[in-house]
């Protein structure tokens, strides 16, 4: 914990040193989700509802996804950038330090400019909490919190999975970005607008629906849902397991081949 705080301080110091870069990146991080937001509101201005969802409801979906993704990027950027850590020999350095490998990878690339996205996501979420017309109960609020955290875990797990592939290819695979960036773009809309096969994939393979769409149905009080839906985000944790195993297999391979 103390080490994590130290990493955080170092990241803050280092990144604030290049002030203009930091502001520009943070600005981009704010502008990007805002432009998406504009797109969404245009859509609703034209069609009124989307797959049976009102704009306030859909924005809950959007806000949860943005906050989850921002949390994942803030913390797990090291795994996203892992090919560079491998290429410049930093991973050898990590191996000669007496701490967990994942903690060190994480700590080496904390990215504070991602607060921009986090703030936008948070504001949207707060606004949608009112605009969706949900009657909030402690359970529903807790469900949203759980969705956000488990959503961050799913995104982070994808980063870790990508890093595990980097052990094989050194350059890393753009393939994983399809699921991180693509998954983010997709999960910010209600899942009901998608084809069945896509829904199934994002429920049972990469469980975005479990940390977002499905529990939201319960929060919105859709018929046929119950409090049990509040526990669905935990499926996101189950997704972390195979990703962690892949990472372990990757590190094992690395120390036996050295490349």
């Amino acid at each position: 914990m103390r080490l994590l705080l130290r990493y955080l301080r170092l990241a803050a110091k280092g990144q604030l040193r290049y002030r203009s870069t930091f502001y520009l990146t943070a600005f981009a991080q704010i502008a990007m989700p805002l432009s998406l937001l504009a797109g969404i509101s245009l859509l609703f201005a034209r069609f009124g509802t989307l797959g049976g969802w009102s704009m306030g409801e859909a924005l809950l979906c959007y806000g949860v996804t943005q906050v989850a993704f921002a949390l994942a990027e803030l913390s797990s950027r090291g795994f996203d950038n892992f090919p560079s850590i491998l290429a410049n020999g930093e991973f050898d350095r990590i191996l000669v330090r007496p701490r967990g490998l994942m903690l060190q990878v994480l700590g080496s690339r904390l990215d504070l400019s991602r607060f921009g996205r986090l703030i936008v996501g948070g504001i949207v979420l707060a606004w949608a909490a009112k605009g969706s017309g949900v009657e909030w109960t402690p359970l529903k609020a807790a469900t949203i919190a759980l969705m956000t955290l488990c959503g961050a875990v799913v995104f982070s797990s994808l980063f870790v999975l990508g890093a595990a592939f980097a052990f094989l290819t050194t350059d890393g695979l753009e393939l994983v970005n399809i699921f991180t960036d693509g998954g983010r773009e997709m999960a910010q809309y209600p899942m009901s607008i998608y084809e069945r096969w896509l829904r199934l994939f994002f429920t049972f393979v990469i469980p975005f629906a479990c940390v977002n769409y499905l529990p939201l149905l319960f929060v919105l009080g859709r018929p046929g849902t119950g409090p049990a839906y509040a526990l669905l985000p935990l499926a996101g944790l189950a997704f972390a397991l195979p990703c962690l195993l892949a990472w372990r297999a990757g590190t094992r391979r690395y120390v036996s081949t050295g490349s």
Binding site: L10, K13, G14, Q15, R17, Y18, E90
Partner: peptide
Amino acid sequence: RSQLWWDV
């Protein structure tokens, strides 16, 4: 290779 943090 350096083990120092570059920017701090």
